[in-house]
Design a protein around this nucleic acid. Structure first.
Lengths: 388, 388
DNA sequence: CCGCCGTACTGTATCGGTACAGAAGGTCGC
DNA sequence: GCGACCTTCTGTACCGATACAGTACGGCGG
C-alpha cells in the first residue's frame, strides 16, 4: 500500500508550495527583491520590505529554504563530529562528554550547529558523505576509516583529534606517550617490578588491526604503550600485557562475551597467579576501575596488595574508592583547541585563503597521584626478587 | 585586506569545480546517467557504471554534493534536537546525556545524523531556521521559544519532549505531577509538617515568566509544583517555596551571582531559621544535592535533622552520600520513545500520509526511597506542633 | 543644463543534483 | 513477422534559493 522503497519525497502539496516566486508575484516585484527582504535588508527600502514581509506572512512563506540556501550559499551552518561507530558513546563516556561540551562551548559564539556523525554505514546512508556540513572534527575514530576518507574527499575543512597527525590537516593531540611514561615511572619508583598493562588491542596478527595501528587509528593506544615501555624498558622490566579487543562482539559467530568481559577474565587470570603483578597500568580510568573491582573480588587490597594507575582523569577517577592515581589530560582544553582550529580552517576556506600551514597542537599531560598506588609490597612468591 | 563582511563563499576554484556534468562530458554520456551511476546503480549496466566511476575517480569527483542532493531530494539525513540556550548542557547534565544517548541509540539503525541546535540566536544565524533538517526534537526548551516557532513554521515533523502537549504535535512526557505527589506524600507520611520546596522560577510578576509558564515553557516545573501541592494541600500544609531563576545572570546589570548561588543563599536562609523546615522537596537531584551540602554546612544531619527528596533519579542520586531519595523517571525510555515518534512522523511525512493523529505519551514515574529521608525529628521550636 | 553618484530594484546565470517520462534497440512468444 | 516488453540510456523540468552586474531615477555641484 505504501510506496516504501523510493527514497524520494513526494511532496505534501496540500497547499502548493510557497516560494520566493510566489511572494514576488503577489507583491509585484522580482524574486531577487524578496530574497533581499529576508537576507539582505539593507538592499531595499524599509517600506517595500515591510510590504513584502507582510505578503509573505499572509501567504505562509516562512523564509528561505535551508537546503536551497545551503546550495546557493555554499554553507550549511553545521559542523560535524565524526565519532566511533556508536553515537551513544558521545553521551555515555565522560571523557567524550567533557570534550564535546568544550567543543560546544567554543562553538557557541559562532552560532553553528553541532552534528554528530556515526562512522557506521546503514544501508546506503553514509552520514559523513551525505550530510551537508561546513567542516568536521574527527574524534578518536575506530577501525572504520571509510567515513574519514569521505570527509577528506569532500574537501571539507577538518581537524583531527586523538588521531595520528597528518601533514596538511590540523590536529590536536595530547602527550599520551609522556603521560604514560610518567605513570610507569611512578610505579617503578614505588619499587614495583612485576607490572601489568591493560590496554586496547594493538599489533595483533589481524591485518586490519595492524593496518589500523600503523595508520594511526589506534594512535592513542599506541602512544600510551610506547610511553609505558619507555619507562619500563629503562628499568629492565617486561610487562604482562592484557589487551581488550576494539571490535564489537560478533554475536553471529557465537561470541557471547563483550570485549570488556573477555578482558576482565584475562585480568582476573593475571591477578590470580602466584607471580601476580603488583602494579597495573591501564589505558583508561574506566579500565582501571574494572581492574580495581576485579582485584577486590580476588581479595586483593588496593593499593596495599596492588597498585593501579589509570589514564584521562575521568571524573570517575576522583569519585571512586580508592581515588585513582591517573594521568590527567585536559579534555576541555582539547575540545576548545579543536573547535578553534576548525573554525579557523573554515574561515580560511571561506575567505579563499589556502590557510597558513596546518598546526599540530599537543597538549601536556600530568600525573595525578591519589590513593590507588603505594610502594610495592614485600616480595612474596618463588620468583619474586627485587633487583638491584 | 580580507573581505570579511560578505557572508558569501567565493569558491576556491583552484581547480574548476568538478560536477556530474564534468564527468558526463568526459565519458560522453548524459549527466543523468552519471547521477544514476552513483545513486541508482540498478539503472545502468555494470560496465558503463564501472567506466563512469573510473572517470569520476580520475577527475577527482567525489560523489553527489550533499547540499544539492538535499535540495533535490528534499531530505538531508539529519535530525535536529533543539536544546536550551547552551549546547554544552547536552553534555553536562546527566539527565540530558541519558536522554540523548537513548535518542542516539534509537536513531542508529536509521543512519541519520543528530544535529544539536542551540536555541540562542547569534548575529543573524538562527540554527533552528537555517540548518537543513528532516525533523526535530524539542527538548525541554527554556524561555526562548522563537526557535520552536521556527521549527513549527518550517513545517518540519517535530516531537515535543517535556513540553506542554499541543494537539497535532506528538509529545513525550513523564508523569511529573504524579511523581511529585508521591514525593510529597512520602515526607508527609514520615510525619513532616514544615516542608520547603526548591524549584525553578514560576509564576513571578515578570510577564515573560508568566507567559512561559502558561505556554508550557516551564511545563515540567509547573507540573511538579502541582504534584507537590496536591499532596501537601490535602495534608493542610503550606510549603515554603524557594525559586531558582531560569534566566542566566545578566552580568551587564551588575548581577554577579549565578542563579544557583542566589538560590543557595535563599535555601541557607530558610534552613537557618528557628522554624526551619524538616523536609525539602527539590525540582531535581542536582538541586537536592546542593541542598544537602548546604544543610551539612549548617550542621544539620541528613536525614536525621532534615529530609531531602530529589527528582529524576540522576546517577548522582545513588552516588552521593547519603544516597538520595528521589522520583525516578525513565530517561532512556523517554529518549527512545521520542526518537521512535519522530522517525514515525518523518516517515509519515515522506510517504505523503498526513500521519494518524499525533500521540501523546506519558511515561510513569516511581518514588525511590533511599537514605536522605527519615521520620520527622521530635518537634522543636515555638511554632512546632504536629497537627491531626 | 549636464554629468556624476548613490539608492532601489531587476535579469540572468548559476549552485549541483534528482524525478519522471520517454526513446532506442534488442529479445521473446506465438 | 510483429507487437509486447525489458533494459539502458537521455531530455526536460524542476528543487528554491543567491551573486553579480546591470538599469532606472532622483539629487546635486558646477
Amino acid at each position: 500500500m505504501t510506496p516504501r522503497l523510493r527514497p524520494a519525497l513526494p511532496r505534501v502539496d496540500a497547499v502548493a508550495r510557497v516560494t520566493l516566486q510566489t511572494v514576488a508575484d503577489k507583491v509585484g516585484v522580482s524574486r531577487m527583491t524578496v530574497s533581499n527582504a529576508f537576507s539582505r535588508p539593507d538592499q531595499l527600502s524599509a517600506d517595500l520590505r515591510a510590504t513584502i514581509l507582510a505578503a509573505a506572512e499572509k501567504l505562509g512563506y516562512v523564509g528561505p529554504d535551508p537546503a536551497a540556501r545551503a546550495l546557493a550559499r555554499g554553507t550549511s551552518g553545521a559542523i560535524g563530529v565524526l565519532m566511533t561507530d556508536s553515537l551513544a558513546f558521545a553521551f555515555t563516556d565522560e571523557v567524550a562528554t567533557g570534550f564535546l561540551g568544550a567543543v560546544a562551548e567554543e562553538l557557541a559564539p559562532t552560532g553553528m550547529a553541532l552534528t554528530l556523525l556515526a562512522s557506521s554505514v546503514v544501508g546506503d546512508r553514509v552520514p559523513a558523505r551525505d550530510v551537508p556540513l561546513d567542516g568536521a572534527l574527527v574524534y578518536s575514530c575506530g577501525l572504520d576509516s571509510a567515513s574519514v576518507e569521505w570527509l577528506k574527499r569532500r574537501g571539507l575543512p577538518i581537524v583531527f583529534v586523538d588521531q595520528v597527525p597528518v601533514t596538511g590537516i590540523p590536529s590536536v593531540n595530547v602527550d599520551d606517550r609522556g603521560g604514560a611514561r610518567a605513570a610507569a615511572q611512578h610505579v617503578v619508583d614505588l619499587g614495583h617490578r612485576r607490572i601489568a598493562v591493560v590496554t586496547r588491542e594493538l599489533e595483533r596478527d589481524d591485518p586490519a588491526i595492524v593496518a589500523a595501528t600503523l595508520s594511526g587509528e589506534l594512535h592513542v593506544s599506541h602512544q600510551r604503550m610506547l610511553g609505558w615501555t619507555d619507562a619500563l624498558a629503562a628499568a629492565g622490566i617486561e610487562p604482562v600485557v592484557v589487551r581488550e579487543s576494539v571490535r564489537p562482539p560478533d554475536w553471529a559467530s557465537g561470541a557471547v562475551e563483550r570485549p570488556e568481559q573477555v578482558a576482565a577474565r584475562e585480568v582476573r587470570a593475571a591477578l590470580a597467579g602466584p607471580d601476580r603483578p603488583t602494579a597495573v597500568l591501564c589505558f583508561s580510568d574506566v579500565m582501571a576501575y574494572r581492574v580495581v573491582r576485579t582485584a577486590e573480588e580476588l581479595g586483593l587490597r588496593v593499593p596495599q596488595d596492588l597498585s593501579v594507575v589509570g589514564f584521562d582523569d575521568n571524573p570517575l577517577a576522583s569519585r571512586m574508592t580508592p581515588a585513582l592515581t591517573t594521568v590527567r589530560q585536559d579534555v576541555r582544553g582539547k575540545g576548545a583547541a579543536a573547535a578553534a582550529a576548525l573554525t579557523a580552517a573554515i574561515e580560511a576556506a571561506q575567505s579563499g585563503r589556502q590557510g597558513g600551514r596546518a598546526r599540530h597542537v599537543v597538549l601536556p599531560t600530568e600525573l595525578v597521584v591519589r590513593d590507588s598506588t603505594a610502594p610495592a609490597p614485600p616480595s612474596v612468591g618463588r620468583f619474586s626478587r627485587v633487583r638491584r
